[in-house]
Design a protein around this nucleic acid. Structure first.
Lengths: 285, 285
DNA sequence: AAGTGGTCTAGACCACTTT
DNA sequence: AAGTGGTCTAGACCACTTC
């Protein structure tokens, strides 16, 4: 709970409720004029905790604040100078921490204005998780038709991927996404019931914009990362009818697990994509 | 050809064949005690060239050296201190330039040893462009069987994607990749003939390791980035026979365009993936 | 011991935005 | 004019690798 600053080169500000533990990866001391205690300040549970550079510790603290909702999506976070003062480190160290958060899309820097918490309510964010692009023309937002919203007990496979116990309550959603009137994506979602209590078909239908925006604003759960496994399979009768194609038509099947802060899985999504005039666009770099 | 250093805050080292142009994005001067000429030192062709921060200019110079083969894949590049001296800038500026090159996988830093040019002859690089993963077990290297190597005139579509003229010579390769004896990928490649002169079926067959390693070592062309468009389609008779499945089996179709330094397209690849026990793995972040 | 990249600091100035 | 992030510098020390 209480972080202690342990400088290693000169001993200013050692006591007096600092926020950051300054520790070296190895060699607790050796040429350290300060620090009476070797490496076991604060709360020494194990003698081999994972040390890390100062800026990583700052980054972890900032991430905790983001996770706790201290600064909400879209809001301005304190300036680098203020954070440097708060954590009693140099601005350069805060800067490096924020650089990494920015690289991970957790925050967005705007020169002259400040640093903002990322949000799914931004044009630029909309296509970060929607990789299906039209073969011709510019990307457009799909129309959304909800087919189903149910509460059910998590099947074993769903529970495993969402890190739940089999039988835990989940919310199941099924919907169709259309581009220019052409049904193109049939999607199923499974969400942990405890996090998304109160999610109804009405809310999903009346909400305009990306579903992740709704999750973020109404349920305080922000998706920040996802993994997808993609396969090809043949449309069964029911799917074919929904997508208005012949049974047996080859479809892309994308199974996505989305994560929020702390690498916690909070969504399982299975999309069936019709790739007649669209394709899944990916960058390898 | 001749870079000129133009400091903007204090006038040391202005003349004397420096390597770097220091320019500001706007406002050529205003509070600049030096620089008699406003903003037209060196070779003023257009009055609105693209200015950029110092570290971006350093990065561009380093990239040119990489592209020119001054440091070859796997080799050690000069230390940060030496580069700083060479370019007459601080180590921190060189560091920031190399940071970006490292983030783009053009170089790899190794603490205590130095910075090395990236190469496809590394275990870690092998799976950067091979996204097809087994559903169970650990990734393994596929076996490679060459079906075809031909010289032909670039069809219009191939020429367009490779930025060639229709009818230019290209090398066409067709091969099968197998995992544990099971044919899984049927792949076609088109390569610009001028770059890959002398590429034969024998060389492809006797070479062990990733094809991009061969391209890099034997032909001096290093792939650094690619884009893929993925679709689902049904196997035709010929493909089905090669992959030992029934005609009509749904397959993933990945069309890849690979780029080398300077965003120059140097490979078109079309892979048909059998996704019965493998999947295309992707990270969204 | 020497050399390399990695971290941290302090201070200067620039570019952009808002007051 | 004031405040923010962006760039650049100089110097210190740390961690890792090699000699």
């Amino acid at each position: 709970m209480s972080y202690i600053r342990q400088k290693y080169s000169c001993g200013k500000l050692d006591a007096q409720g600092g926020f950051v533990v300054k520790l070296r990866t190895m060699n607790p001391v050796s040429s350290n004029p300060v620090s009476p205690e070797p490496a076991s300040a604060g709360s020494p549970s194990s003698t081999s905790p994972t040390f890390s550079p100062l800026y990583q510790q700052i980054k972890a603290l900032l991430t905790q604040s983001l996770q706790a909702g201290e600064w909400k999506p879209g809001e301005l976070i304190p300036s680098e100078v203020e954070l440097a003062g708060r954590f009693k480190v140099s601005q350069g160290t805060v800067r490096k921490a924020i650089d990494e958060l920015s690289a991970e899309n957790l925050v967005v820097r705007r020169q002259g204005k400040g640093t903002f918490v990322s949000t799914h309510h931004e044009e630029r964010a909309h296509f970060r998780f929607l990789k299906l692009m039209p073969d011709e023309g510019v990307p457009v937002h799909p129309d959304n038709r909800i087919l189903d919203v149910k509460r059910l007990r998590a099947p074993a496979e769903v529970a495993r991927l969402l890190d739940l116990k089999p039988g835990d309550g989940v919310i199941y959603i099924r919907r169709i996404l259309s581009f220019g009137g052409a049904p193109t994506i049939l999607e199923e979602l499974w969400l942990p019931g405890t996090l998304f209590k109160g999610l109804t078909a009405e809310k999903l239908e009346e909400y305009k914009g990306p579903m992740y925006g709704l999750f973020e604003s109404e349920f305080g759960t922000r998706m920040i990362r996802a993994t997808e496994k993609i396969r090809a399979l043949a449309a069964d009768e029911a799917t074919a009818a929904q997508l208005e194609v012949a049974a047996g038509t080859p479809l892309l099947c994308a199974e996505r697990v989305s994560f929020t802060y702390g690498d916690k899985a909070v969504e399982l999504r299975r999309g069936l994509y019709l790739t007649a005039s669209h394709h899944y666009q990916n960058e390898l770099s």
